[in-house]
Design a protein around this nucleic acid. Sequence first.
DNA 1: GTCTATAGAATGATAGAC
DNA 2: GTCTATCATTCTATAGAC
Lengths: 188, 188
Amino acid sequence: MSLRERAGQYSEAQLRTIETALELFADHGVGGTSLQMIADALGVTKAAVYHQFNAKEAIVLAVLEVYLAPLEDALEEAEAAGGTPKARAALLSRVIEAAVERRQAVSTLQNDPVLVRVLGDYEPSRQLWSRLFAVLLGDDLDDRARVRAAVLSAAIGSVGHAFVADVDDETLKTQLRDLTRRLILLPG
Amino acid sequence: MSLRERAGQYSEAQLRTIETALELFADHGVGGTSLQMIADALGVTKAAVYHQFNAKEAIVLAVLEVYLAPLEDALEEAEAAGGTPKARAALLSRVIEAAVERRQAVSTLQNDPVLVRVLGDYEPSRQLWSRLFAVLLGDDLDDRARVRAAVLSAAIGSVGHAFVADVDDETLKTQLRDLTRRLILLPG
DNA sequence: GTCTATAGAATGATAGAC
DNA sequence: GTCTATCATTCTATAGAC
């Protein structure tokens, strides 16, 4: 089942929980966020949250699925268009757009140790990630390309940095597109 | 008191605790790391850890002080040399070097919500950060420069990314120096 | 500096009523 | 779908002996 399909199966109440959980994860880290905190933020009891998700891990996984789903859409369009430079640029734009629109959360999704572990252990997200970077940077990467890939990934994650907190969305997107395009198209 | 001086006041036992704590923070996040875990990793009891630091917050602060101290050294040399391009390049090199040598921990130090909060609330680290980026990127930054600063910071933080886990230290340093110099010297 | 022992609160998770 | 009540476990932190 695709990430899009998995993400589409959550109820309204579950989606509210997922959204709330992500905000708390961003503020306190996954490990620093308790089910009590999530329940309080939702205005319900812990038991109500356990009715939606049978464990904290399930919430963490759901958060990942919901926020990776839009990337899957963008990726499939790019793959369908072939590996053309135009398709790559369009994919990069959409990834940046998605990141900027969820600024506070991106750094958490990319860096929180718990989410990183789940992201690495969970097959659908593994595949998404390798397909994404295959389109953006090519299939088999040498050391030089790997560093570029890591920097590219981190550059996108910089949308949540304090330095750009006051930069408006459009400016941030434009500047980031510029910088990251240079990273991708940089001559060997 | 400078960060260097503060960091220099910790005992051997405290430094062992700080080192161990940082490793656990990197694996589980600050919020996901208990004093019990730290004590177990050190092979002592919780009470022994509390003898060294009266609270978990004190350990977090100590971790920051110890790992920012080398940056303070590098920064002061660069400031003494004036804002010459040569001094900037040398500073950037030392920052990258320090980051590569502590790969697993850098992402935690830069991204963990608890550490980010402490880093923002703690005056000595605030000053260090603004001085550092003043030397690297100039004093008053417009939006464009702010995005570059955030990307530069994130690029340095990418040393811990899974993509470069197998890249050896020297290659990583060289490639990162290349990419980040382009970021700094990029024409407006 | 390290230990045992403990206090008191918070944790993840479950059972059963409405 | 939400509640109250509860479980065993773990948490931060402290007191006092060696």
